[in-house]
Write a protein that binds this DNA or RNA. Structure first.
Lengths: 183, 183
DNA sequence: ATTTACATGTAAGGGGTTACATGATTTG
DNA sequence: CAAATCATGTAACCCCTTACATGTAAAT
């Protein structure tokens, strides 16, 4: 049920339309909880049905824009959820499945995939660092900003971890290819 | 569709019953692709329906044991999937959502959660290291074992990464609590 | 004989992805 | 006026989780 609470959090930061929420998810919340616009619209309706948020149609806006705001009940629910313990999710990684399958299915194309993932993570890392520079450098940070910075550091570190591991994996796979050529 | 291919991989390593597969997922495959026994049984039926695996009822076994084996078509499908590129999945992390929500919902209970996650990751790390010691130490490693070792190192590193970040987060949250007490 | 471990399944509900559909306003 | 952008939505499908249900064989 985290999508619901990610939305409540985002709406607490700023009341928005579904469309705007989707954009904000894409821009920053996606780093720890991604969602498509369809998911967001569906959940907003449920949240309104459950009395946790309220929508008001904005006149003179394009496309019948609806502004969503968190209601007191929504704040109660969010606080209760934050305090509720949830164990970390299992990590699911198709690339690691592919590596394990390679023993039977061959390594064709795998090295390219490792490189592609490396590039994705490097790009993501660069994006995080840009945000870090822009939002958190040389500023007096209030508590909210310190929490956001902590989250961002989790993202940067995670990307850096995968970059390092992928480089190790690339070396290892290259070595395998070479020892195959020798035969 | 990675569950399907994780199962094909596991069955390539050793033909098994659904029950045994579920245990093996729980013991080692879970590290990069987890699945419950219900998921596994359902997917095995689909795989059989699609002609990728074949089951034979084992007589004199408890509970009508069925042995599943990969068919040639299954091997073709697995090889095709391994070579197919898939971008890395978005990371979803409820704890990070909670941290971000804390700015509005309060930090009650969060420090305890950070400690609990720390313990989970430390335990997982210990489990991985035990496997590493048992399976990969002082042995001549063939290609399959080298791939598995690489996967295991991904797991160890990931746990270590989270342990480090959680320690940083705990320090940061403690500092916040203390500066609140001062007022 | 009872408990434990083995073994397979159904059902319900929620979450996530992709495709499709529609319409309004601003910009060029 | 055409295209791009803003804005909301339906439908279908698959995957995952949880709860429930049933039965067999080995061990104590």
């Amino acid at each position: 049920m985290s999508l619901r609470h990610a939305i409540l959090t985002a709406l607490s930061e700023r009341s928005s339309s579904g469309f705007e929420l989707a954009r904000r998810f894409d821009k920053s919340i996606r780093f720890f909880w991604s969602a498509t616009h369809q998911q967001i619209y569906r959940e907003l309706k449920r949240l309104e049905g459950d009395g946790l948020v309220e929508s008001t149609l904005q006149p003179n806006s394009r496309g019948n824009r609806k502004l969503y705001e968190v209601l007191p009940q929504g704040r109660v629910e969010l606080a209760a959820w934050v305090a509720r313990y949830e164990p970390p999710r299992a990590h699911r990684d198709a690339l690691l499945v592919r590596l394990r399958a390679a023993a039977f299915a061959g390594r064709a194309g795998l090295l390219e995939q490792l490189h592609a993932h490396h590039e994705v993570h490097a790009r993501q890392r660069a994006e995080y660092l840009k945000i870090a520079e822009h939002d958190f450098l040389d500023r007096e940070l209030d508590e909210s900003a310190r929490l956001q910075h902590l989250i961002l550091r989790a993202g940067v570190g995670l990307e850096e971890y995968w970059i390092r591991w992928l480089e190790e994996a690339i070396v290892e796979l290259r070595a395998m290819e070479e020892s195959n050529e020798d035969r």
